[in-house]
Design a protein around this nucleic acid. Structure first.
Length: 254
DNA sequence: ATGGTGGAGGGTCCA
């Protein structure tokens, strides 16, 4: 069973990349972020043609998340419970014996800004819900763009990014709090010392120079991390023409 | 401090 997460930065612009990649990889479940379209503009048929079901939480211009799955998608929930949010950033559902979440954590813009405050509030609400989800004792897979590089090892130039957005201490502590509930950062749990990025800025030839960060993650419940075989970043789509600035990450479970 | 690029939408905002 393979589950992938991918911030596609507009599903309509990236549709060909995504559908081709799905056919090549035969992923079972794909968690998408940054759809940048409303539900009625989502190219649902392109996925049903390939045998996938879809659960979409769209939004015009910004944000938007979705779950794409070969198996039926049940018990769909939108938004972090008890967090009033104008922005489409969270979708949760049950697929077989697993619960999956596609999440797009706010970027935060600049440390200290209003958007940064919103990011920290979002993460606090998420923590509360993730604590509750642990009581289900399920295989729980939370994948998405967390917009946080957990550690200096996850940054191409940690000195340059010290205390800046994606790397600041308060947001890193928030991510630690989520993990300390009892979740695992699947990639880091399997590969303690590996430097591997999931996002590269469009500007200044960042990808060509591998100046990236690891900000897309799988946070797994104990039941799920115990079944994890591998976590792989597929950087190939990032090298295509008109790519997303994020690469997909693939989680393999027994 | 600024600019470097890209998506959406038709202004700038967001990343």
């Amino acid at each position: 069973m393979r589950i992938a997460t991918w911030n596609v930065n507009s599903i309509r612009t990236r549709l060909e990349h995504v559908t081709k990649w799905l056919q090549e990889t035969q992923i079972d479940v794909l968690l998408l972020q940054e759809l940048k379209c409303q539900n009625h503009d989502f190219p649902e048929e392109s996925f049903s043609d390939l045998g996938y079901n879809t659960a979409i939480f769209g939004q015009k211009t910004y944000n938007g998340v979705a779950i794409i799955s070969k198996k039926p998608i049940e018990d769909i929930q939108l938004n972090v419970p008890n967090f009033k949010d104008e922005q489409a950033r969270y979708i949760e559902a049950v697929i077989g014996n697993k619960r999956v979440v596609s999440i797009y954590v706010p970027n935060g813009s600049e440390v200290g800004s209003e958007k940064y405050h919103y990011k920290l509030c979002f993460l606090s609400a998420l923590k509360k819900h993730m604590k509750h989800l642990l009581t289900y004792k399920e295989e729980l897979i939370i994948g998405g763009d967390f917009n946080i590089a957990p550690d200096d090892l996850d940054v191409y130039d940690a000195a340059k990014w010290k205390d800046r957005i994606l790397c600041s201490v308060p947001e890193r502590l928030k991510l630690s709090e989520l993990l300390n509930l009892g979740y695992s950062d699947a990639f880091r749990a399997l590969y303690p010392y590996e430097k591997c990025f999931t996002w590269w800025d469009y500007r200044a030839g960042s990808f060509q120079q591998n100046k990236g960060m690891r900000i897309d993650h799988f946070l797994l419940s104990p039941e799920a991390i115990d079944k994890t075989q591998s976590v792989v970043v597929d950087a190939e789509p990032r090298a295509l023409d008109k790519p997303s600035d994020h690469a997909p990450v693939i989680l393999e479970l027994t």
